[in-house]
């Protein structure tokens, strides 16, 4: 996803001189693609995220579209008030890019786990929140954030995520995308869990259980309309995200409650307690009850 992001940003910056990129001293072997081409629109702001976001706001006040890059919680939680006051209150085109979200930096420990970011960013005024599910969605989300004025948040994994979408599906801003058709239950995924969601559907298809899979690359604005349609169609909703409470599951739950739909609803997500041990992303997901086997089990029981 990182690679798709930076390659797309370079392409966009070639034709759009408003595009700038700031980093909080991170992005080795990733950002050079941009910095070497546009040295006058690139800046390493140092390990100083509060200042970096303030600087980004100042640049954006003069009409620039400023991407701010760092990992996990550093461009969001560390400088949350700058994002809220300087960027969102003033409705400025500053786009926060966090790489390695979820448990991608598994072994690095809880300080590096971005597991509250979607909830926190979703609460902020004017904020567009995007969590693409594969490199194809990442390219679309990056272009979309440049086109949409105002604050944006782009949640990325690390590198090497597989391509899920074949070809270039038609994405619509603020709308869910159907990835797998099915009838017995709807599995809604956001971010890098998309591949897992498709694998779950494929495994269950072999057992003659028909699961519809939707990808939700945009969380703000939220496609509540589609959630209601799906709830009425399949009557069973499961959400899947590498994030704690406050993210996709919370948004879907609120939506179902407001619509007065008493459908079966199971949010699959991380536990809110800090992860205390080292481990790979897959291992730690398993500790949180999000192993492939466990997800298959839950989805199958809901669909039955």
């Amino acid at each position: 996803m990182r690679t798709s992001f930076i390659e797309t940003l370079v392409q966009v910056a070639e034709r759009d001189p408003r595009v700038w990129l700031l980093t909080g001293d991170l992005g080795y072997s990733v950002l050079e693609k941009f910095s070497s081409k546009f040295p006058d629109r690139y800046l390493n702001a140092g390990v100083a995220e509060q200042n970096m976001v303030g600087v980004a706001a100042g640049l954006a006040m003069t009409g620039k579209v400023v991407f701010v890059y760092s990992i996990a919680n550093f461009p969001t939680l560390r400088c949350l008030e700058q994002v809220r006051n300087d960027v969102c209150y003033h409705n400025l085109s500053v786009k926060i890019v966090a790489v390695g979200c979820g448990l991608a930096y598994g072994g690095h420990g809880y300080t590096h786990h971005g597991v509250e970011d979607l909830g926190v960013m979703s609460l902020l005024p004017h904020m567009t929140v995007m969590a693409p599910g594969d490199p194809v969605e990442t390219r679309w989300a990056t272009r979309t954030l440049v086109d949409k004025s105002g604050p944006g948040y782009l949640r990325l994994g690390k590198a090497g995520e597989p391509i899920v979408h074949q070809g270039e599906p038609t994405f619509e801003f603020g709308k869910a995308v159907q990835v797998v058709d099915g009838t017995q239950a709807t599995l809604i995924s956001t971010g890098g869990m998309l591949e897992t969601a498709v694998r779950v559907a494929n495994i269950l298809a072999a057992r003659r259980v028909s699961i519809r899979v939707l990808s939700m690359p945009t969380l703000r604005p939220f496609d509540a309309e589609r959630v209601v349609v799906e709830a009425k169609r399949t009557g069973k909703i499961i959400t899947l995200e590498e994030h704690g409470p406050g993210g996709l599951g919370t948004l879907v739950g609120e939506c179902l409650a407001q619509a007065g739909l008493g459908v079966r609803f199971v949010p699959l997500r991380l536990q809110p307690e800090p992860t205390l041990c080292a481990g790979s992303q897959a291992y730690l997901c398993g500790r949180h009850g999000l192993s492939l086997e466990r997800i298959v089990e839950v989805v199958e029981s809901v669909a039955d």
Partner: peptide, 20 residues
Amino acid sequence: ELSTGSLGHGLPVGCGLALA
């Protein structure tokens, strides 16, 4: 130019303006 109230916000934004 800028809404303020929580302290420590103005100078970073001023740096961004000066940089621009």
